[in-house]
């Protein structure tokens, strides 16, 4: 199946996913993996959309529902493959006072350890006066815990509170 990556963003309101996916379904499109999250109060979703049997045009299908819901969308053809999940073996948690460059510095160190980020979420919480930054990263690397910790020690010297722990996935 040929896949397209559909990105939709806009002001959040109840029922967006239902209306968008219903429009896709009615036009014969298939959904693969999807990821939706609210970012700064905005609705955001990315969906792998597979060509349906009807040969309908994805843009034409989405335009009416996107206009109705006030959403912007973007479509890219991708080479998508299902059933290729990789299991993370390390988790990295960062938290502390919000400051410029945290993400770049942490992920820079991880990249130098051959760390492949599989999931990343970051959030600014706390209050407007005292914002706190929280980030969780899960990923895979052949590096050892000791070498990751050693590499991340550089950041601790810069007052970035970062913890790495192995993930032992239970198969049962």
């Amino acid at each position: 199946m040929d896949w397209q990556m559909l990105t939709l963003v806009g002001e959040d309101q109840p029922g967006i996913v239902a209306q968008v996916t219903d429009a896709l379904y009615q036009s014969g499109f298939n959904l693969g993996e999807t990821s939706m999250i609210r970012l700064g109060g905005n609705f955001t979703i990315m969906m792998m959309v597979g060509d349906g049997e009807n040969g309908e045009n994805l843009t034409a299908t989405l335009t009416p529902v996107a206009e109705k819901l006030g959403l912007q969308f973007h479509i890219d053809p991708i080479r998508g493959v299902l059933h290729q999940h990789r299991v993370p073996n390390f988790q990295v948690r960062v938290n502390g006072a919000d400051r410029a460059g945290i993400v770049a510095r942490v992920t820079g160190v991880l990249a130098s350890c051959g760390f492949n980020i599989l999931e990343l979420e970051s959030d600014v919480v706390g209050s407007a006066k005292e914002p706190v930054y929280i980030m969780t990263i899960q990923g895979y690397t052949e590096s050892t815990l000791e070498s990751l910790e050693g590499a991340l020690d550089v950041l601790k010297a810069q007052d970035i509170d970062v913890h790495v722990s192995p993930i032992e996935t239970l198969i049962g």
Binding site: H83, I167, L170, I171, G172
Partner: peptide, 13 residues
Amino acid sequence: LGREGCLSVPDYT
């Protein structure tokens, strides 16, 4: 909190 997979649910954790 911990990560799990299952022989009866392939390709997912």
